Every structure is written in structure tokens, then in C-alpha cells.
Amino acid sequence: MLNQPIISIKSIPPEATYPLRHRVLWPDKPLAYVRVEDDARGYHYGAFDGSELVAVISLFVKDGVARFRKFATHPDYQRQGIGSRLLEQVIEEARAQGAHTLWCDARQEAADFYRKFGMETTGAPFYKGSVVYHRMQRSLG
């Protein structure tokens, strides 16, 4: 049996998310493509295996509505519960920031993962480049 990593979740600066966002989400695009205009106003979290950053997520809250973006887990660490822990942290942070709704634009292949957290698809699928996305949301009440 493989040793499970001991993961810690910490707040990180937006710039720390860029390399992992790039590697996992859009490796064929320039690094600037993974930056978000509002990064400076967001809350950014990283999951660490020791000192190695292995997953990232960014949360943006405005007027009671929270959105998470650029959720990425290093391929070697996927399907180990790390992303689930990170998303649970973001759900709690969104509540703490007074949000009543949480939403994201989810890649089609990740939709079932988000459904495990009570998120539901709203509206029609859409594309970012050649990637199919669904808008997903849930109440935080």
C-alpha cells in the first residue's frame, strides 16, 4: 500500500497558483492565460504535501455570491481526496465571507465530482476553446 501524503491547506498569494494552474488546466496556452483579472481580490488556497504545492483553488466573493475558479490538482495527487478537502475548505470560507450561493464553471469531465458537493448544473453547456464546460452552483444556506 502506498503511503498517503500528509496534506496541509494554507492561504497562498495568487502568484503561487499560476504554475499549477498552467500545468494542469491550460498547458498549451501561455502562462498569462491562467491569470484571473480579479486575482488580487480573491482568496487563494493551496494543498501542500510537505513543502510541495500539489493543488490550488481560488475563491471570489461579491454581494453574497461566491465563485471558485482555477481549481487544479497535480496529476500525481489526483483521486486521493486532496481536491475534496480543498473544496470543503473553500465552501466553509465562502460561508464565512457571508456567501449564500457558490458557483463555478466546471469542465464537463469534472461535473460528477462537483455533484458530490451538492452542486447542480444550470443552463446549457458552453465552450472555452475546445473544452466543454457547465455552469454549476449550490446554495450555502
Rank of each mutant, 00 (worst) to 15 (best):
E120S: 11
Y133G: 05
G50L: 08
P27C: 09
P125W: 03
Q78K: 06
E88K: 15
Y127H: 12
H44E: 00
V34W: 12
R35D: 02
A47Q: 04
G141C: 11
Y33P: 00
P5L: 09
A96D: 06
L20P: 06
G141T: 11
P19M: 05
F48L: 13
P14H: 15
K70A: 15
Q137H: 09
V34Q: 12
R115I: 03
P27H: 13
Q4P: 12
R67D: 02
D105F: 10
S58P: 00
F113L: 10
F113M: 06
A32T: 15
Y133V: 05
D112F: 02
A32S: 15
H134F: 14
A47L: 06
C104P: 00
M136D: 06
F68Y: 14
G129W: 09
Y114S: 06
M119S: 10
V90F: 01
V36W: 02
E120G: 05
Q4N: 11
D76L: 08
R23V: 00
A124T: 06
A110V: 12
R85I: 07
R35Y: 13
Q80M: 14
D39M: 12
G64W: 03
E15H: 07
G50I: 00
K70F: 15
Q89L: 14
L59R: 05
E37L: 15
G50A: 03
C104F: 02
L2M: 15
E15T: 10
P13Q: 10
Q78F: 07
P14L: 10
R23P: 02
Y77H: 01
F68V: 09
S139C: 03
E93S: 05
K10V: 02
S51F: 12
P19V: 05
W103D: 07
Y43R: 14
A94V: 01
H134G: 00
M136C: 06
K116L: 13
R67M: 11
L20W: 05
D63C: 00
A72E: 02
F126H: 07
F117Y: 12
D39P: 02
Y127A: 04
E120D: 12
E120L: 09
R115L: 08
D112G: 00
R95Q: 13
V131T: 13
P14W: 14
G123C: 05
Y33N: 05
E109G: 01
A94R: 00
K128T: 09
K70P: 01
Q97Y: 05
R95G: 01
R23F: 12
P14I: 09
A40F: 08
T17K: 11
E120A: 11
L31A: 11
L31H: 13
E52G: 06
Y127N: 10
L53S: 04
L87G: 04
T101G: 02
V24T: 04
Q80K: 15
